[in-house]
């Protein structure tokens, strides 16, 4: 059953009780939370995801709740817990929904060594997965969010899951994280885009999440073959420029942007090697989203 078919009341009840179980890409998660904003976040952005019944295997048990301390009355905070412990320090109460997203990123990135996990967004068109890798602020989320608004399938934002056994990119089409000016850029670029609540003053600045297209969520079980690895760089006023990057340099840059590279050892090196063998790699600078998307759509045809 899709989450959108549940009432707010029953979602709030599940979250406050035994937890709400969701199928997200290849993962089953169970979330408990007494925070109303977390329920609203799910309703706004996770409507197309399936709710699981109690008989499924749960990969990650997480909770977003205020800590039990006097502080809650002075300066309210929330904790993220996983398997019953707290991998992070508490954050201000208002950041609860974003904390869920970040915490879940961490759960996946640190416990899924069947995948090589690259700090990158992945989108797909015509069966070709494009991987946009790079440091925060390089504009990879903005670019992939814009592509998704123009009909590309969202495989994943923030992390690309490259399966070590078949070399395919596996979907986790969770909401796309947009920061600071990217929020306005996407709002202007695609007025239909649904963006959840905005949180100011986080460590990453102002943060909001864009709802993934329902069609991307519905195809969550279908992986895609990576054909291009692209390192984007948003530079105001710059030309749209795609410059080939040698495979060796691309491998090094990917390794630097890998979450679990050291946990995988040689398997990780081999996985990156196969990825670079199988793809064309580029540095990409841009400022005009329409031009960028036209170029990539052409490349994927």
């Amino acid at each position: 059953m899709k989450l959108s078919a549940s009432s707010r009341k029953s979602i709030v009840q599940s979250l406050a009780g035994k937890g709400l179980s969701l199928r997200i890409g290849s993962f089953n998660i169970r979330l408990r939370s007494s925070v109303g904003a977390v329920a609203d976040h799910l309703i706004c952005l996770y409507g197309a995801f399936n709710i699981l019944d109690g008989l499924d295997f749960i990969d990650f048990n997480v909770a977003i709740n205020p800590p039990l301390s006097l502080r809650r009355y002075l300066r309210p905070q929330v904790n993220f817990s996983f398997d019953g412990y707290f991998p992070f320090k508490p954050l201000p109460y208002a950041q609860a929904p974003a904390f869920f997203e970040w915490g879940l990123n961490w759960c996946i990135a640190s416990h899924s060594n069947q995948f090589l996990i690259i700090h990158a967004a992945a989108v797909e068109l015509n069966g070709q997965a494009f991987i946009f890798a790079g440091i925060p602020g390089s504009g990879k989320s903005t670019l992939s969010a814009a592509m998704v608004c123009r009909g590309w399938r969202l495989l994943s934002d923030e992390m690309t899951l490259l399966c070590l056994s078949d070399g395919l990119a596996y979907p986790v089409p969770r909401p796309v994280s947009l920061k600071n000016q990217s929020l306005d850029i996407i709002r202007q670029f695609s007025p239909d885009a649904i963006i959840g609540s905005i949180v100011n003053d986080t460590l990453k600045g102002t943060v909001g999440h864009m709802r993934p297209p329902d069609s991307s969520v519905e195809r969550s079980a279908t992986p895609a073959l990576p054909t291009k690895v692209i390192f984007p760089k948003y530079k105001q006023g710059s030309q749209t420029e795609l410059a080939p990057l040698s495979k060796a340099k691309a491998l090094l840059k990917l390794a630097e942007n890998c979450f679990n590279y050291s946990a995988l050892g040689k398997e990780g090196f081999d996985g990156l090697g196969r990825l670079c063998d199988a793809t064309d790699c580029y540095d990409f600078s841009y400022s005009n989203l329409d031009e960028a998307i036209a170029l990539f759509t052409e490349l994927a045809s």
């Binding site: 040698s246 060796a248 590279y261 050291s262 050892g265 040689k266 090196f269 090697g273 670079c276």
Partner: peptide, 18 residues
């Protein structure tokens, strides 16, 4: 090792360095 054209990436498995 991985060799491509005139470049090479070397992975030292014990130290994890690349």
């Amino acid at each position: 090792f991985r060799f491509w054209e005139d470049e090479c990436v070397v992975f030292h498995e014990l130290s994890g360095q690349i």
